[in-house]
Each structure stands twice: as C-alpha cells, then as structure tokens.
Nucleic acid binder design. Structure first.
Length: 271
DNA sequence: ACCGCTGTTCTCCG
DNA sequence: TCGGAGAACAGCGG
C-alpha cells in the first residue's frame, strides 16, 4: 500500500505498539521477505526493547537496545497489524513479535515484495539500497539540491522523481499528484526545468505529502474510492474524469511501465 | 480468462 | 554511461 505517507503512519503505529514493551518471542517463517537470512536471525529479537523507528522514504529502521536493528520495507502489500492474545493470526503472516503486554504485532505481506532484515543497526545502514536513498522530503526539501539533480538528468520528471536516490519516498501516486500541483508536465525532461519551476515542485511535493498525511491522521487510511465514485486524489487513477481544477479530462500515459496521470490543460508540455 | 497494480531490481537494447 | 522498455516477484480485484 505504501508510499511515504502510509509508511509514516505505519511507523507511528508500530512505535506506539512496541514502545515500553519487551519482545517475548519473535518468529518468522522462511520466505522471500527475509531474503537470504535464516528465520533464526529474526528470532534473535527475543528479549529486546524498541528504542525508536527511523524512517527514510519508504524504509523503516527499527532500533532496539544493544545496537540491534530491523529493516522493514512494506513493498506493495506489506502491513504491520496488532492482534490481541489468543486472537488468531491472519493469512500471509511473514513475521510475528509477541510482546510483554500480551499483544502480538504481525507483519502480513501477501505478495512478498516487502523486506524484513535483521542485523546490527550500523550494519543495516550499509545495505546498498538503504545507503543510496536520497533525502527524505519531510519536513522540507533542499530546493538547491533538487534543482541541481534534476538539471543533470535527461529523464522525464516522472521517472526522475520515482528514483529513490533523487528523493526518498515518492511513488507512482504522489509523483503524479505533485506534478499536477506544480503544473508541470510529467514528460518534461529534467534538463528543461527553470529554477522557478523547481520551486513550485518543492512546494507541491510538500503539499501532496502533508495533505495525504493529514487525511490518514484524521479518518481511516485513504480510501481509494469514495462514496460518490470519486477518489481522494487530484489526478491519480482518474483517467477520463474531469480535472478537479479545470474540468478537462485527465489523461493516462505509461512511463517506465507505470501509469502516469495528468491534466493536459493544467500541465501542458511547454509553457 | 485477462489485465492492471501504491515497489524494487535486474537484463537487454539503442 | 545513460535512459527506456520489459520482466520478475505473487496475489487480488475488476
């Protein structure tokens, strides 16, 4: 489910569930989620207490006492859920932490695209894909750096912003949303960006993420389809529906094998 | 039955 | 060396 806002909500939940409790037992079946690690490695979390959870983009680093850590990436379908004592575990369980307060905290992941990696905190930080992450866009983006990075790539803005080394945490949804708010065409090349456009983009990314985050904080998680057949987003998954700003039908194109949504009038190719 | 999908990583090709 | 396409992973829903 997750791009940055969903992962941030997961981080806060997980922190509230784990803090102040001791892990009484940890178990994980052998799955892709553990990559090459043995289930025993995960089980070593027994006896640990969480100190805090660091988030960079869509990646979480759970830090336990004794310098022990756990990397959690939710992939497409990963989710942490809490369960009371004696409540049955749900399907697709890929890891369980039993806590001293009687709850169990489960990692569920039907499609196994997620990741649970155990190790010393400092060793986990060396993981290549973790190390390569660009800066997290929250609380704020360094506009000078973003402009410099985008100016040197001939890729489209859509593809560049999907690259976790450029900024960590944007995915297919929020790239479309942010480009719409910034009134930038997703097919524009990075090299074509004017500084004022980067500044708009910086604002737009922040607004998109904060807007999603506040929605998730208030109601239930974001509903992809709401009562009126509408969804929460300005453009994402709204092909052929009227732009919420100008009523022009939203277009869907494919970039890097993924759908991009944009308003051809608000986001013209050149302006 | 077929297609698409909120992510990441790899290969192939120009 | 870079960028783009496509595939793989695996399950669900339309």
């Amino acid at each position: 489910m997750p791009e940055l806002p969903e992962v941030e909500i997961a981080r806060r939940q997980l922190e509230s569930w784990l803090s102040g409790r001791r892990i009484v037992s940890a178990r994980a079946p052998k799955t892709r989620v553990l990559r090459s690690q043995r289930p025993q490695r995960f089980a070593e979390l027994k006896g640990r207490r969480l100190q805090e959870i660091e988030r960079v983009g869509k990646w979480m680093l759970l830090k336990f006492d004794g310098g022990e850590g756990l990397i959690s990436h939710l992939g497409m379908t990963g989710k942490w859920v809490r369960r009371g004592r004696d409540e049955p575990a749900t399907a697709y369980l890929r890891g369980t932490l039993e806590l001293s307060d009687g709850h169990a905290v489960d990692y569920r992941d039907p499609r196994l695209f997620g990741l649970l990696l155990r190790g010393k905190i400092e060793q986990l930080r060396q993981l290549p894909s973790f190390r390569a992450l660009g800066p997290d866009p929250l609380p704020g983006i360094d506009a000078d750096r973003l402009h410099a990075v985008l100016k040197t790539t001939r890729r489209s803005l859509k593809e560049a912003l999907m690259d976790q080394r450029v900024l960590a945490g944007l995915g297919n949804i929020y790239v479309s949303e942010a480009l719409h708010r910034a009134e930038l065409n997703p097919q524009r090349r990075g090299t074509s960006l004017k500084r004022a456009e980067t500044d708009r983009l910086v604002e737009a990314i922040g607004d998109s993420l904060r807007n999603a985050l506040s929605e998730e904080e208030s109601d239930e998680p974001i509903t992809y389809v709401e009562e009126g057949g509408e969804n929460f987003f300005l453009v994402y998954d709204r092909a052929e529906k009227p732009c919420k700003t100008c009523r022009t039908p939203i277009k869907r194109i494919v970039q890097g094998g993924r759908s991009t949504y944009f308003c051809p009038r608000c986001q013209p190719r050149r302006r």
